[in-house]
Simulated assay, not measured.
Amino acid sequence: MITLHKFSDDFCEENYVLIALHSDLEDYALAYTLNRALKISLIRSKTDLDISNETSFPIYEWKDKLNERYWTLIVNTSIKEEYLEFHDLFSNETSSTVYHVIPEYKDVDYLLKIEQEEDEIDSDMLDTILEIPKIITAYQIETNNLKSKQNLII
C-alpha cells in the first residue's frame, strides 16, 4: 500500500510584503536611493527573473541576516523589441511588446518584495520610502488575491 502525502497551500506559502513603487528613476538609481534611505544593501543579481522564454526582469537583492529579511527589488516592466521584415511600404520596422511581472498592476514601475515573518510592513519604512524625492508614490499590495503571484517566486 502506498502512502500519499499532500501539502496544503499554506505550508508552501512564503511570508512576504510587497510594496508598489512609482518612480521614473532607472533601476540602478532606485536601488542606490533605497539603499541610502533604508540603510540596506541591495545589489544587482547575476541572474534576472525569467518568467517565460519571452522576457526577463532585472532584480536587486539583499539578505538582511540581522533582521531575518530577504529584500528583492524587481523591475515590473520589460519591453522586448523585435525586428520585423516586410517587403512593402513599412519595411524593416521594429515592434515592441510590453511584459509585466504583475499584470494586474501595469502602472507600477517597481516591486519591492520583503520576505519576513510578519505580513505587515513597518509604517516607518513606508514613510521613509515616501520621503524619497524621486518616488512618486509607494503602497503595500495585498498579495492574497494576486493572480500572478507565482511570478514573484525567485
Rank of each mutant, 00 (worst) to 15 (best):
31 A>R: 01
31 A>G: 03
32 Y>A: 03
32 Y>D: 03
34 L>E: 03
36 R>P: 00
37 A>S: 09
37 A>Q: 06
38 L>D: 07
39 K>A: 05
42 L>G: 04
43 I>E: 09
43 I>M: 06
43 I>F: 10
43 I>V: 09
44 R>P: 04
44 R>I: 07
45 S>V: 00
46 K>M: 08
51 I>E: 01
51 I>K: 06
56 S>T: 05
58 P>S: 13
60 Y>P: 02
62 W>P: 07
63 K>F: 13
63 K>L: 15
63 K>P: 07
63 K>I: 14
64 D>C: 09
64 D>P: 09
65 K>N: 11
67 N>D: 04
68 E>Y: 13
68 E>V: 07
69 R>L: 08
70 Y>E: 02
70 Y>N: 00
71 W>K: 00
71 W>R: 00
74 I>Y: 02
74 I>H: 04
75 V>R: 06
75 V>I: 04
77 T>E: 15
78 S>E: 11
78 S>L: 02
79 I>R: 06
79 I>H: 09
80 K>Y: 12
80 K>H: 10
80 K>W: 00
80 K>E: 10
84 L>F: 04
85 E>Y: 11
86 F>W: 12
86 F>E: 13
90 F>Q: 03
90 F>G: 00
91 S>C: 05
92 N>E: 14
93 E>C: 08
93 E>I: 12
93 E>Y: 13
94 T>W: 07
95 S>M: 05
95 S>Y: 13
96 S>K: 15
97 T>N: 10
99 Y>G: 06
101 V>M: 04
103 P>M: 02
104 E>S: 12
106 K>V: 09
107 D>H: 08
107 D>Y: 02
108 V>W: 04
110 Y>L: 07
111 L>C: 05
113 K>G: 00
114 I>Y: 03
114 I>D: 08
114 I>G: 01
118 E>I: 02
119 D>L: 06
119 D>F: 03
120 E>F: 12
120 E>T: 05
124 D>I: 15
124 D>A: 14
125 M>N: 01
126 L>A: 08
126 L>N: 00
